[in-house]
Design a protein around this nucleic acid. Sequence first.
RNA 1: GCGCCUGUAGCUCAGCUGGAUAGAGCAACGGACUUCUAAUCCGUAGGCCAGGGGUUCGAAUCCCUUCAGGCGCGCCA
Length: 567
Amino acid sequence: MLNIKNIIAHMIAEKVDTLTVDELMDILEYPPNPDLGDVALPCFKLSRILKKSPVDIANELAETLPKSEYIDRIESTSGYLNFFVNRDIFIKETIDEILNKRAAYGSTNIGNGGNIVIDYSAPNIAKPFHIGHLRSTSIGNALYNIFEFTGYNCVGVNHLGDWGTQFGKLIVAYKRWGSKERVEKYQIKELMDIYVKYHEEAEKDPSLDDEARAWFTKMERGDTEALELWQWFKDISLKEFSRIYDLLDIKFDSYAGESFYNDKMDAIVDELKEKDLLIESEGALMVDLDEYNMPPCLILKRDGSTLYATRDITAAIYRKNTYDFDKCIYVTSAGQSLHFKQWFKVIELMGYDWADRLVHVPFGTISIGGEKMATRAGKVILLEDVLNEAIEKTLSIIEEKNPDLEDKEEIARQIGVGAVIFSDLSNNRIKDISFSWEEILNFDGETGPYVQYTHARACSVLSKADNKVDFSFDSSLITTKEEYNLAKRLSLFPATVIEAMEDLEPSIITRYLVDLAQDFNRFYHNHSILNVEDENIRKGRLALTQATKITLENGLKLIGLKAPERV
RNA sequence: GCGCCUGUAGCUCAGCUGGAUAGAGCAACGGACUUCUAAUCCGUAGGCCAGGGGUUCGAAUCCCUUCAGGCGCGCCA
């Protein structure tokens, strides 16, 4: 991998033996204005160590640093040491590497085959898949791809919410207001309707809740009728979910949900007892976390039934035994942060040294016009509606601009769905999102369709050249500002992937793609690729175009988007 | 009350473990399609980086504090 910072850090380390290459890598930065240089060393920190003024240090280094074929010249400017890289070599090596590695450009093996369990999506059975569920799904899926790309082996787990008192409620609702015919006809919509009705009625008549609890207890005791209804509701939900996952092109390696751990929790409760971690309070059992400045972690309710934490602890131990993970990652809303901190601590107190491999990846809440979405109140925007809306809009744009496009239904799906996922992965995870139809259906500017369009544009140029791209281009003919900026951007992709992996932050890739697309479009707009007289310039620009196409495609795939060749 | 998160252009957001003149997109206005796909590009305008202290050669960035908003705090997940 051609890494300019790395090369420069080595150069400096030869001269300044008080700093290591790694430390220098940290200090080196990219100047705000490319006219100043390609890489800069601010000398203010060295000033104290070397007991000289920053200006003197920069001046001295500018004269004494060893020559390198990669560096054209070095300038000292008011305490900064600015490096100007040799563009010929830099562009040549960057493009060569991309053309050689193709789909593997940007990948690394830092994971060394270690296992990563990623727990994401996890919708609740019998509830509709709404826009709020998208975040966990899209972030988890992107992290899955990013970890695979950096040399890990991922296990994607969909920890379905398929157990709990809401099923008691649903059974009560079904028995009172539902019918087999209606459920078979309207599927999850009907389940949602009767669930909403249940909550309306329960407001007036709290005895319904007792009834619901009784049904759930029946489920736990293995009552046939209760379990058959539960299984039926579950099948209906899974059918709906897999339709949505197909649309999104997202897959899981395991669907072991909450019910999977029903028979595994007793042993864990026993283990907690043996390890003397449980205390009793008002009939419930809990782990006291007072000395860690946290409220206690509830393990068993007064009636002896289990809780969320019980299940999570059990699942973590199961996953450790089954997958021997390097990391187990939970992609859930930021509102659950305390819960995770609590039970991670319990795992630690149980004496498991792998407690520090459990990672919570929180994300912000999605709201509509300032209001939280609530299934119970029926106030939701269904993800499928959003996806279909986006696909429809894409299709109408295609009809207008490129009606002869082959396979337009599928391409419209790829772009429409891409617009929704891209928008979801645009901001830092932790930021709250206010859902807006206008924004999610906007295909201009920093959007998925923009990046996909740019990719297709590159593909179109390449196909007009019969995809004849070879390595025999002369990089000294690639001289314009736009070409150089594009090459620089391309060279940053591998470091960007690593950063996204370390920060568990897919938006880093998303934003990189926008920057890359912008750089390519500026290049494309300012310079002809095919219609240039000089055959060698043409070759160089085609190589640059091909390198862009590859990098855009690799990046899009990481965040879970397709890269259609035509749009 | 305690804890966590957020506050940057009219709106949505970038800004790396502190570095040179705070950047994009949307919206607005003005330009560019007989030429490789205009889902594009170029330009104009838009800022007391919530307020106040502090640390530093240097702060949007780190520390303290105030304010505003969001979320959480033993039998939901």
